[in-house]
Nucleic acid binder design. Structure first.
Length: 160
DNA sequence: TCTGCGTTTCCTGCTT
DNA sequence: GAAGCAGGAAACGCAG
């Protein structure tokens, strides 16, 4: 099942595949993002050794790259725990409830993704909260906890 | 050029 | 009282 996630859902989604830079490149590029390299060594080292490779990006068109959204980025992190380095974790896999464990780390990763070194969790969470309106996410009355809504897809194990 | 979408940014109020 | 989170409003960048 997770194989299908990896190959059909995770990889085709281009959240990790910057058109010009792989994760390995991103997290080893101190010139591009020196602060993150030092502040979250555990996360960056995890990503450096993760299975996300630039070669995985080969089949991704520029169009698909640009269609990558924040919620898909989050979803794919959740679906690939070996790559998210404990930044996100499932609270209730069946219901799509997840928790942001390392808010700063998540913001940094998203900032890397968007090439925005000024990204913060405050801003990222604001974007996540907009998904409440569209039904992609549902509000959970707990801090740092979110739930995939009816309009989110690809996160359910049996619906991949 | 215009429009819509998906954020990003700033700000304020609320909660812990 | 301080820090962090949530939501409103406006701006921004990009694709069609």
């Amino acid at each position: 099942m997770l194989d299908s996630v990896t190959h059909n859902t995770f990889l085709p989604n281009v959240s990790f595949c910057d058109p010009l830079m792989s994760w390995t490149d991103l997290f080893s590029n101190e010139e591009y993002y020196p602060a993150f390299e030092h502040q979250t060594d555990a996360v960056s080292s995890c990503l450096k050794t993760s299975g996300i490779k630039s070669q995985d990006c080969h089949s991704h068109s520029r169009t698909s790259l640009q269609s990558s959204h924040l919620w898909e980025f989050v979803r794919d992190l959740l679906l690939s725990p070996e790559e998210n380095c404990g930044i996100l974790e499932w609270e209730d896999r069946e219901q799509g409830i997840f928790r942001v464990v390392k808010s700063e780390g998540l913001a940094k990763m998203w900032g890397q993704r968007k090439r925005n070194d000024r990204m913060t969790y405050e801003k990222l969470s604001r974007a996540l909260r907009y998904y409440y309106k569209t039904g992609i996410l549902e509000r959970v009355d707990r801090r740092l906890v979110y739930k995939f809504g009816k309009n989110a897809h690809g996160w359910q194990e049996d619906k991949l």
